[in-house]
């Protein structure tokens, strides 16, 4: 079981968290073409190595935050709060 460093609470057991997928995805603009939406909804990279991803500390502070995890070893290289605010709002 991974030990996930919540930037707000410190290291906690994986069971307190929910995985949130690729942290680099940005929701397309509302008028973006359908192909952009298909990419956003369905297509994911599957990197072998470091992966930037989102985690949710549901059984803790209820914060979403970013984690860089090595997909080969499950080693967490770093974690960070969500900021600065991300653009591309509808």
């Amino acid at each position: 079981m991974m030990l996930i460093p919540c930037p707000y609470c410190g290291p906690r057991n994986q069971i307190e968290f929910t995985y949130g997928g690729d942290a680099t995805l940005r929701r397309p603009a509302p008028d973006a073409p359908e192909s952009a939406w298909v990419d956003y909804v369905y297509l994911r990279d599957n990197p072998c190595g470091p992966h930037d991803e989102l985690w949710y500390h549901g059984a803790g502070c209820r914060s979403w935050f970013k984690v860089r995890r090595d997909t080969r070893t499950h080693q967490i290289l770093e974690s960070a709060t969500i900021d600065p605010p991300q653009p591309a709002d509808p």
Binding site: T18, L54, S63, W64, I82, Q86
Partner: peptide, 12 residues
């Protein structure tokens, strides 16, 4: 969880 995510990540 969905609303937390939208407010914290997408539309802070």
């Amino acid at each position: 969880q969905h609303i937390d995510r939208l407010l914290q990540i997408d539309w802070p």
